[in-house]
Computed example of a mutant assay.
Amino acid sequence: MTRARISQLADKYMSHDMITLHTELSDFPEGRISLLYALLSHQPAAAQHKELLSVVTSLVQMGLDTHDLVDNDSAPARSGMKAMRAQQLKVLAGDYFSSRFYQLLSQAGQIDMVRQLSEAVCDINRSKMTLYAKMIQLKLSAEEYVQHAAEIKSGLFLSFTGVMGGLYERVWPELIERFSRCEVLLHELTRIQKLSKLESSWGVWHILQDGTEEDRRTLRDRREDQGIIKGLLNKYAVSEKLAGLLRQSAAQLQALAQRLQSDKLLRELQPLIEPFVQAAGPQPATALKELG
C-alpha cells in the first residue's frame, strides 16, 4: 500500500464540497500513517485491520490538526465575512472528520479502539494546553519545545502500542516518538527557509534560552517583527543547529528501525526516513574531523 493510496482512502471520508471550496485544511500526516501501516502489516493480530486503523487514525489526526488552524486571535469584525466563514468551517471540518472516525470503528465493532483513540485525544489536548501556557509565559526551552511538539504528534499513534507484539511493542513507542521528532525538526527547518511564522519557531526559543540579554530583550519586545527575527536567526546560525539536530535524530531513527530485525520492514521504512536524511544534509567537514 503506497502513501498515495492511504491518502486516497482517507480522502473518501474527508471529502466535502463546502470544506474544499471555503477553507484550508492541514497537511495529511502521510509519514506517521505510513509508518503505522507498515508496522501493523507485521502484526498477525492486527494485519487484517491495518487499512481501517490507518484510515481512522488519519481522520482523527486531520481533525486535531485542522482545529489547530483556527486563529483565535483574529477579530471577526476586521477579518471579513469570508475569513470568518473559513474559521468556522475549520472547526466544523475537524468535528466532521472525528465523526467519521467514530462511525467507521463502530461499524467494524472496534469499540476498544474508539476508547483508546479518544483517550489519546484528551491527552494530546492537555499537552497542547501545557505547551501554549509555557509559550505565553515565555517559560520554554528550545528542547522542551521540540519534546512537547513531538509528544503531540505521536500521541494518537502511541495508542497502538498494545496492538504490537513482542519486539515491536518494545520498539514502537520510541520509534514513533523519534519519527515525530524528525517531523518537528524538519518543519522548523522549513519554516526558516520559507520565513513562515518565525515568532513561535524553535529558533526564537533557542535565542531566548542562549542569546545575549540584549537579543533576548529584543525578541521579547518585538516578537512579531519578522525582519528582526530573521536577522537574529542568522546571527545564531539557527538553520545549521536545526540541521544538526535533524541529522542526529534521523540517525537514531535508522538505528531503531534496524532493531526490528526485519530486512523487508527496513526496506519499507527507508523511504519514510530518507526525507529527513536529505533535508539534514551531510555531516559538516569540521564535525567529521573532530570525530576522527
Rank of each mutant, 00 (worst) to 15 (best):
A45P: 00
Q137M: 11
E30C: 04
V56M: 03
Q270W: 08
A45R: 12
Y168I: 00
R115H: 09
L92Q: 07
G94I: 02
E119K: 12
T66E: 10
D221M: 10
K241Y: 01
Q270A: 11
K12S: 11
D263R: 13
A285V: 15
L140W: 11
K128E: 10
I19R: 08
E30V: 07
E151H: 14
A45T: 09
F101P: 05
A46G: 02
L104Q: 10
A142Q: 10
V70S: 02
V60D: 00
L186H: 07
D27L: 11
C182Q: 00
M135L: 12
V56N: 06
V60I: 14
Q110H: 10
P173I: 05
S201E: 00
M81P: 00
R223L: 12
E151M: 09
E199T: 05
R247C: 04
T161L: 00
A46M: 14
L242M: 11
E240M: 06
R220H: 04
Q283H: 12
A279E: 05
L233V: 07
G166T: 06
L265K: 04
M135S: 11
K153R: 15
L35W: 06
S262W: 01
I136F: 10
P275W: 03
L52A: 06
A77G: 01
M14Y: 08
L185N: 06
L92Y: 00
T161C: 09
Q252C: 03
L186D: 09
S196F: 11
V55W: 04
S7Y: 10
K12E: 15
R32Q: 09
C182L: 01
V91L: 14
S74T: 14
G166S: 06
M84N: 15
C182K: 02
L140S: 09
V121G: 05
D17P: 11
T20H: 13
G244H: 05
D215Q: 01
T286F: 15
F179M: 10
S262P: 03
H67V: 06
Q107M: 14
G109E: 02
E169M: 12
L9A: 14
Y102F: 15
Q8G: 12
M62A: 08
H148F: 15
S262Y: 01
P271E: 05
P76S: 03
I176A: 01
Q252E: 14
A251W: 02
E274V: 05
Q248G: 02
E169D: 11
S99Q: 11
L35A: 10
K289L: 15
S99R: 01
L219H: 02
V277Y: 02
L140H: 09
V184M: 00
R115F: 09
K289S: 13
K230S: 14
D225K: 09
V163R: 13
V114E: 03
L253K: 04
D210Y: 14
